[in-house]
Design a binder for these strands. Structure first.
Lengths: 203, 203
DNA sequence: CAACTCTGTTGTCATTGCCTACATTCGATC
DNA sequence: GATCGAATGTAGGCAATGACAACAGAGTTG
């Protein structure tokens, strides 16, 4: 299970922080947050139990870093989907929704971490930044939609939030085990359709 | 903090299970799941650290029981809202949504527990039953709506899930701290409207 | 009253997170 | 390139925790 690497490890690992995060994420997806122990991860990586402290003041800091990393990766995927060629606004937004649900369901434990971290008072500034960065393509797309008259005008934050709630809720319910995984794709399609429908300017 | 009660406690507490659950729920809402320690709760209730084991084989069992209790109480509130006099289908369904979001946001940590438990393999049968029982009024209402032609026909589970995703997602995002609490009521109203809109037969 | 079962107590153990002192390495400055 | 301070890792210790086992009191049932 340990990330086996150089046979004779130098005193300084060189990239301990990254190694810890990598291993932590493995454990996270295999055993959930509760199964994540700093000491065990240190063992797996091959350092002493005190070493992680130099990079993460406490366990929560490690979890925050994982969450932040999660937002970054989610942001990458969303950005890629947003950049992909798409004919219509609807198609474009639908693609983002699919990417989101896909990420959320493939990294259930990580998603919990990501959304548990935001409301913690002491959460780092960079976590917030990462979260905002991840969702910025969505906001951007909605602003474009508004400009093109495809989306109801109004405060973007509010409009986006309302629209995205259905997508996030679906992902959340899948992770809770309320949804048969096989029916997920069609549900996502439905949700995306409903989202676009809900965004339409109403006469 | 402890639930002070009878001065000279008999050897047998009489209702230890309930007392533990009550105290656990207090701790849960004050300090979250991570702050919940079996030993601390036992201390608070005034029993030895081994006593809880007679009622909950391990910590997870206590959490499951909390979740189950949460579903029961949520069910009570939903049922009450469903039973309340309401003129229209729309109004009725909106009332359920409000009750749900209200419960979810007032018991954020508990909600996490409730929805984390469902996908755990070893979760007890009664937890599932409680969850289904809590949501049954929603299903029932949607079936009625379908009968009255107010709701698109089709598999109830699927329709209800799709509709409820927006509500649940909104609650989830509020708990994540993405929503200013002041704007919540109007957002819930929006979400409910969108939900009803999405349920309408199209055609 | 005697066996039996529940329920609670006490003591123990491994694990864990966090802390402090110490060791080794790296890097900047002279 | 030597020196000194900062960064990084090690070793040991501590209190708290969850799980477990052996035991004890209390109620129950024959």
């Amino acid at each position: 299970m340990a990330i086996s690497s150089e046979p004779s490890r130098p005193y300084h690992h060189g990239s301990l922080r990254d190694a810890l995060l990598r291993r932590a994420e493995e454990v996270l997806s295999e055993s959930g947050v509760d199964g994540l122990s700093l000491r065990a991860i240190a063992r797996d990586v091959g350092v002493s139990h005190g070493a992680p402290r130099r990079h993460f003041p406490d366990r929560q800091a490690l979890l925050d870093a994982l969450a932040e990393d999660g937002f970054v990766r989610l942001g990458d995927e969303i950005r890629a989907a947003a950049a992909a060629p798409a004919s219509s606004f609807v198609e474009r937004l639908g693609a983002l929704a699919i990417v989101y649900v896909s990420f959320a369901t493939q990294h259930a434990a990580l998603l919990d971490l990501m959304f548990a971290g935001k409301h913690r008072p002491g959460a780092s500034e960079s976590l917030y930044a990462a979260a905002e960065g991840a969702f910025s393509p969505v906001f951007q797309l909605i602003v474009e939609g508004q400009a093109q008259g495809e989306v109801v005008p109004g405060d973007v934050d509010r409009v986006a939030l309302a629209a995205w709630a259905g997508i996030h809720g679906l992902a959340s319910m899948v992770n809770a085990g309320l949804v048969d995984r096989a029916t997920l794709p069609s549900l996502v399609a439905d949700a995306a359709e409903r989202m676009v429908l809900g965004l339409r300017p109403r006469g």
